[in-house]
């Protein structure tokens, strides 16, 4: 059994077994009532990187320059100045798009805006918050102490700390809705979804996007489908395309409690770099443990009481230690 399989299969049962008799476990969080999200359809992505450029423009991020020779944005992965990047999966002779064997496929990397976000759960100072209405995971630079626990708690390695700046901060996609930008609040869509020429990055409510994704799953490969672009609830335009052979898997529907940014593709998601996640979020387990131990500080208080009594008894008549 390899590590990935192990984690996938045993996570749920293992979690259950160990909680027995402790306390009621905290379940996964539920999606926000008006959760905003995006749907990335890898089969529609043509690798134009319009979303990467749009993201940098909208968020005012500088291009990632590699060495002195490449004077254009060549971000390799998420970085403090890169909230969104298109990566490629390749295999063999790389001839066929969206083919697992001898093919290639594009994959978007950006904040998934988890329904049960790890970063939000682990942040000690509430610098990361899941918006109660839109479900967008936002960042408060004035609260952040730079401990980077969020980076360890994120299953997707999304938050990026600016190590090269002595007064650096954390950087991640906030769905173009951070203070000063607030595109969502102003009725606009995310920069990447707006720029996408094929509708590979589709904007909308999580609910509508999930419906759209399920609709695509049900389509027969080869038949022509009118793919929407822009906002799935009110598409700016459509384009016709033959339906590819989708994997019957909507990443983000259930993974670790689900995500607001969902992915569909023709390639298995582990090949596209998605982590081995079960349905239960890890932070729901850690919070269960933590709240079992520290519920209203009752247990520590009782323990402290007992300890105090013991120490008092053992130090009485002898200032510093027990009986010799």
């Amino acid at each position: 059994m390899n590590r990935r399989d192990f984690l996938k299969t045993s996570l749920g049962s293992a979690a259950m077994a160990a909680t027995a008799g402790v306390a009621e476990a905290r379940p996964n969080l539920e999606p926000a009532p008006q959760a905003i999200g995006m749907l990335f359809d890898s089969t529609l992505c043509v690798g134009c990187k319009a979303c990467v450029t749009a993201c940098k423009t909208v968020n005012g991020n500088k291009p990632t320059i590699v060495g002195e020779d490449l004077q254009w944005d060549s971000a390799r992965d998420l970085a403090p100045e890169t909230f969104n990047v298109i990566k490629v999966y390749t295999d063999g002779n790389q001839l066929t798009k969206d083919s697992e064997v001898d093919g290639f496929a594009f994959e978007k990397r950006s904040c998934m805006h988890c329904v049960d976000p790890g970063c939000v759960s682990v942040c000690p100072v509430t610098a990361l918050v899941k918006d109660p209405v839109t479900g967008i995971v936002t960042y408060d630079v004035d609260a952040c102490i730079g401990c980077r626990t969020c980076m360890t708690g994120c299953p997707y390695n999304v938050p990026q700390f600016d190590y090269d700046n002595p007064f650096g901060a954390l950087h991640k996609c906030e769905m173009c809705n951070q203070k000063g930008l607030e595109r969502i609040n102003n009725g606009m869509m995310t920069g990447c979804a707006e720029a996408c020429p094929t509708g590979a990055t589709l904007f909308g409510s999580r609910e509508a996007l999930l419906d759209e994704a399920k609709k695509r799953m049900a389509l027969k490969p080869g038949e022509v489908y009118n793919y929407p672009r822009g906002d799935v609830r009110d598409p700016s335009s459509y384009h016709e395309k033959a339906v590819p052979e989708y994997r019957q898997h909507i990443w983000g529907e259930k993974e670790a409690g689900g995500t607001n940014v969902m992915h569909i593709s023709s390639i298995p998601f582990d090949k596209l770099g998605m982590p081995p996640l079960g349905e239960r979020s890890f932070v729901s387990i850690s919070e269960s443990v933590q709240h079992t131990l520290y519920s209203y500080m009752a247990l520590p208080a009782v323990v402290l009481g007992g300890l105090t009594w013991l120490v008092k008894r053992n130090t009485d008549g002898d200032d510093e230690g027990g009986e010799q």
């Binding site: 690798g47 060549s74 971000a75 990566k87 999966y89 384009h239 090949k271």
Partner: peptide, 26 residues
């Protein structure tokens, strides 16, 4: 194909400028 319909991008080999899935910064 319709004149203004979107084309499929048939790239023989995806250009090197695309980072692979396991390509990371630093």
């Amino acid at each position: 194909k319709a004149l203004f319909s979107l084309s499929d991008v048939k790239t023989h080999t995806p250009p090197n400028a695309f980072p692979t899935i396991d390509s990371r910064e630093d």
